[in-house]
Simulated assay, not measured.
Amino acid sequence: MKFINIIGTTGSGKSTFARKLAQKRQLQDIELDNLLWLDDWQESADEAFFCKLKSGMEAAPAGWVIDNLYTRSIEMIWSQADTVIWLDYSFSLNLYRLTKRTLWRAMSQKPLWENSNNRENWKIMLSRKSIFLWMLQKYPQNKQRYAAMMQDPEYQHIQFIRLTSPKQAQEFLKRLSGVNCNKKA
């Protein structure tokens, strides 16, 4: 377990889990949102995004933990991934976490990612680009898509781990504390 992708619907805690896992396994943490988003909520063009992603992956020959998965990045990430961890939490838990996180970010006005000036704002939260609308639309689609991908013969080289509660995720991380990170899992 040295090339790991963390997936799940928005609000599941992918970034936090990925940081903790990367630290425990002594791997490079790569946050896709940080690579994708430019200032003022502009997305990187595919070519630029792929270049940044490739550079991040190549800069981590000892291993990486990539948080998130965009359709356009599946081939690049999963061709090298040996493990995919799906944080498959209930809709109500994800919605609660998303609401808490988004409101805190809107009030604090801290930049969301290191490489852009983006901040949560009330206008976007109440618009058609709302992260809440996105979650309502994508949650059921993502569950179906991820379950199907786990069964796809193209991805049988990947170990899939499905964690269905924050307690399972904490126990998973805790178990890694006893693992020698220099040995192949």
Rank of each mutant, 00 (worst) to 15 (best):
Y96R: 09
S177D: 15
R145A: 07
S79L: 04
F91H: 02
E154Q: 15
C181L: 11
D82P: 00
L27F: 12
E114G: 00
L69F: 02
L38I: 04
W78I: 09
S130Q: 03
L98F: 02
D152I: 11
R175Y: 05
E171V: 04
F91Q: 02
G63A: 13
L133H: 13
E114I: 01
L173Q: 13
W113A: 05
I6P: 05
H157I: 12
K14D: 01
Q159M: 09
L69R: 08
N117P: 09
K143I: 03
Q23H: 13
W41S: 06
E75L: 02
K174L: 12
S44T: 13
Y96I: 07
W64H: 05
E58K: 14
K100H: 08
F17V: 07
A106H: 04
M57T: 10
N115K: 04
A48G: 07
H157E: 03
Y146E: 03
W86G: 03
M107A: 13
T9W: 09
C51V: 03
L112C: 05
P153N: 10
D67F: 01
D82S: 04
K183R: 15
R72K: 10
T9S: 15
L133T: 01
A22M: 10
P140I: 04
K143T: 03
D152T: 04
L136Q: 07
K110R: 15
D33T: 03
I77A: 05
L87K: 02
W41H: 10
D29N: 12
W78N: 07
F3A: 15
A81I: 07
Q23K: 11
E58G: 05
N115S: 12
T16M: 13
R162F: 00
Q159N: 12
K54E: 15
L98N: 06
T83K: 11
G178W: 02
R128A: 06
D29Y: 15
P61F: 04
K100Y: 09
I66Y: 06
N121Q: 02
Q141M: 14
K20T: 02
K183M: 12
L27R: 09
S44A: 14
M125E: 11
L32H: 09
A185E: 13
M76V: 01
M57S: 04
R25C: 11
L38Y: 12
F49W: 05
N34L: 10
W37R: 08
K143C: 00
P153C: 01
K138P: 00
A148F: 05
I85H: 08
A45C: 08
N5L: 07
T99V: 10
I77G: 05
T10H: 10
T164K: 08
M76G: 03
V65T: 05
Q80H: 07
W104L: 15
W113S: 01
K14P: 04
L126I: 06
S55C: 14
Y96Q: 13
G63Q: 07
A59V: 06
I30W: 09
F132Q: 09
L69K: 01
D46S: 08
N115W: 01
